[in-house]
Computed example of a mutant assay.
Amino acid sequence: MYIPFDQLPPQARLWIYQADRALTEAEQEEIKPMLERFATDWSSHGKGLQASASLLHNRFLVLANNETVTSASGCSIDKSVAFVRELEQRLGVSFFDRTRLAFLKDGEVQVVGMNELKNKVAAGEIDGQTLYFDTLVNNYGELQDAWPRPAQQSWLSRYF
């Protein structure tokens, strides 16, 4: 069962996928109905999930499920991964490259490779207060309250 993204309860579980490039307006318009259709049909052991999906900041695909209604099973999570892989093929984009980190600087999403991070920190281009899009955020309440969050309040804190 589809639920509008902005009506998710705070405890709704999230899966955040970061595209390796910004999605164009045309691409976003193309996949928005696909996201709603997937969320509508997404199920766990034959029971419909109270699910939603959204694109944020032209780059982040977020799938969500209200786990207080029905928990996502391993098989249903596998279905969501397969769906995201289909979107990758359709758009020619990668949603699974975890070596790229996204920051919000000057109102723009800027992506930095993990191999560049230490140098960017040393040069002062990224500091503990730089806003970071932590794809490990796992519930809607946290997404609303602290996303993006200062890098020092994420797993990146060890760099500061």
Rank of each mutant, 00 (worst) to 15 (best):
L35Q: 04
P10K: 12
S157D: 11
A22C: 13
G107S: 03
D78L: 06
A12D: 05
N58C: 07
T99V: 06
T40V: 09
G48P: 12
R59C: 03
D20F: 04
E36S: 09
M1K: 15
V62I: 12
R149H: 13
N139L: 06
A102V: 05
Q7R: 13
K105W: 00
L56N: 01
A64C: 04
M34D: 11
E88Y: 07
Q129N: 14
T99M: 08
A64Q: 06
M114Y: 11
K120V: 03
R21C: 04
L104W: 05
T24M: 02
K47V: 14
S154D: 02
E142I: 08
A53L: 06
A122Q: 14
D106F: 00
S80A: 12
P150D: 01
T130F: 03
G113E: 13
G113N: 04
A39M: 13
D20I: 04
T24F: 03
L61Q: 03
M114I: 10
Y17P: 05
V121C: 07
G107I: 04
F5V: 06
R100T: 10
F96P: 06
T99F: 10
H45K: 12
E142V: 15
A19K: 08
A26E: 13
V93M: 05
Y2W: 10
E29C: 10
L56K: 13
G92L: 06
T70Q: 15
E86A: 11
R85Y: 08
I77Y: 07
I31A: 01
Q7A: 05
Q28N: 07
A26M: 09
A64Y: 01
T24Y: 03
S44D: 09
Q11L: 11
R37W: 05
G48L: 14
P9F: 11
S157H: 15
Y140W: 14
M114Q: 13
T135Q: 12
L61A: 04
Q28H: 03
R98T: 15
M34N: 13
F95K: 03
Q50S: 13
S73Q: 02
S54Y: 04
K120P: 00
V93K: 04
V84N: 06
M1Q: 10
E27F: 08
Q89V: 07
N119M: 09
S43D: 15
H57W: 13
N58E: 14
G48E: 10
L143A: 05
I77W: 04
P150A: 08
Q89G: 09
D106E: 12
G107A: 02
D41Y: 01
V111G: 00
S52I: 02
K105C: 09
I126K: 03
P10N: 10
S43Q: 14
H57C: 09
G124A: 12
R59Q: 13
V93N: 06
N139D: 08
Y2L: 12
V62G: 00
L35Y: 02
A51L: 04
V81C: 08
L136Y: 14
A19W: 06
I3H: 06
